[in-house]
Design a binder for these strands. Structure first.
Lengths: 163, 163
DNA sequence: CTATAAAGGTCAAGGAAAGACAAAGATAGA
DNA sequence: TCTATCTTTGTCTTTCCTTGACCTTTATAG
């Protein structure tokens, strides 16, 4: 025994949509009812997956149209250097762990922070590390996140390690 | 404990998880309820084993997700340098800003952390960021420092690892 | 122009799984 | 013994997933 990985339906739908986006080089267009039929689930399940995994915070633009011939279009948006400042400005005064991780995921995916730093920041923002009651915890987390990103983007990578 | 006695349930679960980690070459993913069922114990027993034997201090990173399809992922950290492990063990439960900066200075001087990460960590540990009263602040700072160092030394530079 | 059908949107309820924590039981040491 | 620490369980909380009922928008047939 040893492999009993039982991915949730939402995970499978996420993978499917990701493959569509990859195939379409950043753009995918789906029909909610059709995909729901594919996975034999409620149509709103598709809405849930999109809301929880392809949100604007995660770097996607969602367009849709109802009625006959309706669709949902997902567009993966790339961060430009300029936008990093905007993203940082957009970080509120209180940040949940999930929100913080979303920011970091995105920055890593877009190649703005390296893997190692990604894990370092993630560690510092964990609720298991910031051991205190809400809402102070979310406030401190926001501070730490901003301070770390600020420090990161105001220091060039050192080429000491010879890469 | 003498060897004529039965190992405790916690010990058996520990062995089982260790075998999974060995099998997965450093990574294991379990479902708490499932393992609890295997050993016929309360699910929280699994949490106890993880907390007491696979803690970050012992060199593991724990990730988890609740809800349907939930899981607990254990990642064994390979701290190559014995010195670093000793240094990290030496970090107490409360760490002042000066102490934290001293640790970081030393790690940077010895070439264990790169400049950029040095500044990122320093930012996260500043008393201007950890806005709270003593002694909680020094406690949180200790947590953050340990977590960041742990994450840093468990990920190779410029290397894809992790989910 | 209107009625109808064909989409997607919203939301709340219920279920599933891990987390937190306290209390009780077991064990080892002084 | 007595006490501190480690184990084990049980209960309640939080987070995430899934569905279903109802609503709004859009296309199109008549």
């Amino acid at each position: 025994m040893g492999r009993w990985e039982l991915p949730s339906l939402a995970d499978m739908i996420e993978d499917y949509i990701n493959s569509l986006i990859a195939e379409g080089e950043g753009v995918a267009e789906i029909q909610r009812a059709f995909v729901a039929e594919m996975f034999r689930c409620a149509p709103s399940q598709i809405s849930y997956v999109i809301a929880s995994r392809f949100s604007p915070e995660k770097g996607f633009i969602i367009e849709s149209r109802r009625g006959g011939g309706g669709y949902i279009r997902l567009i993966r948006v790339n961060l430009e250097e300029e936008d990093i400042r905007k993203l940082m400005k957009g970080i509120g005064e209180y940040v949940s762990q999930q929100e913080a991780y979303d920011y970091l995921d995105r920055l890593r995916d877009e190649g703005y922070v390296d893997d190692r730093t990604f894990f370092v920041m993630k560690a510092a923002l964990s609720r298991n590390v910031l051991l205190m009651a809400l809402p102070s915890r979310d406030m401190i987390r926001a501070n730490v996140l901003k301070a770390m990103l600020n420090a990161y983007f105001s220091h060039e990578p050192d080429d000491e390690q010879g890469e």
